[in-house]
Write a protein that binds this DNA or RNA. Sequence first.
DNA 1: AGAAAACTTGACTAAATGGTCAAATTGCAG
DNA 2: CTGCAATTTGACCATTTAGTCAAGTTTTCT
Lengths: 211, 211
Amino acid sequence: MLGHGGSEPRRTRIQAAKRASIVKAALEVFSEAGYSAATLERIAEAAGISKASLLYYFPGKEAVYVAVLEDTLAFWLEPLAALDPAGEPLEEIGRYVTTKLEMSRKRPAASRLFANEILAGAPAIGGFLKGPLKELVDKEAAVISGWIAEGRLAPVDPRHLIMMIWAVTQHYADFDPQVQAVLGREAAKRRFAAARETLLAVLLEGLRPRG
Amino acid sequence: MLGHGGSEPRRTRIQAAKRASIVKAALEVFSEAGYSAATLERIAEAAGISKASLLYYFPGKEAVYVAVLEDTLAFWLEPLAALDPAGEPLEEIGRYVTTKLEMSRKRPAASRLFANEILAGAPAIGGFLKGPLKELVDKEAAVISGWIAEGRLAPVDPRHLIMMIWAVTQHYADFDPQVQAVLGREAAKRRFAAARETLLAVLLEGLRPRG
DNA sequence: AGAAAACTTGACTAAATGGTCAAATTGCAG
DNA sequence: CTGCAATTTGACCATTTAGTCAAGTTTTCT
């Protein structure tokens, strides 16, 4: 569809740049509206082109959506793979929580994109969840299990612990309107600082190996 | 539109029953598809009537949606108001977590309905969040603050603690496809039991007053 | 029974929206 | 400059879907 054999000349780079700008615009629209409420018209407008032009670069709405998901997936998983078995468990987990929370603050659209997709039954990334994601979680769960076996962490189900961390960190991006309503006038920065302190206090104390 | 002055005869009861059955059907559809992907046709079909008949009972799609939200709101908040200031803090919080988790298991559609609504920016319940919900949270936060002041609970931000509990419990309903993918072949009952054990272990240990 | 009110629904309309297409424009290689 | 390929887009088409309506059917009341 795109490839012409051989040396991949300028054109390709232009196309890639254009597609990237469409994907960027589409991330905003899909994450705010969800798949069905998002319109190609809005995405095209956000990207500064016409709808017909957008459809010159992508075969259809679903293709744009998949491209956005793919573009965001790798980035979103990155921190999970960062647990170092040789490190101090509470420190590693604390760093993981902080990183994930930071991502919720800096890239809320990415978080909401996945929230929408999974809420809708994960029609587009179901395979990814059962494959690569599960494998990654299994691997990290093994690291946590190792720490528990060494007595360096309280004995809890590693997979549920991982999901617990996902839940509390992503909550701040996904359910922002509720968070804002409940916290009232607190400044945004203070909000994330307070969240970090609370999460770390409860999680790290709760996971400290029992004497 | 509906009211005829005076003694509210049989008709009203029939109407109420019909509206209730529509609301019940609509909860399923809205919670699975979100507002825009849900169609009146599907809701009517789920309620066993024609679309035109549905529109005889409700003036439009949005009215059905609002009715579903109102019908679900009170029920969903119930457990929050159950924190007893006179009780043992860790016990009260443990009971709250268990209740909320139980609701996620028994009424996942209700949880997903709110998740969708808030993800979409809470267009329909924004006022509720900033009003009644915030007040309820403030009240419960005061109870928690009291416990902390008495040294019966570790010092954490009460509002963030409440949101932390919401996040981890609702996660199991809202992001079920991801939970299923990550946990693999575990049976559903075992899944919730394991979740409860992990959440209670971490939260209660993490909130125990520091010696 | 008979009239009136409540209810039901098939058929329709209007608007939104994903996708197509042919004609115009732009960029570039020879 | 010339011509070809890539790009852009306005106009258009087809489908979906919220909402209307008139013509029925059922229920209730006297």
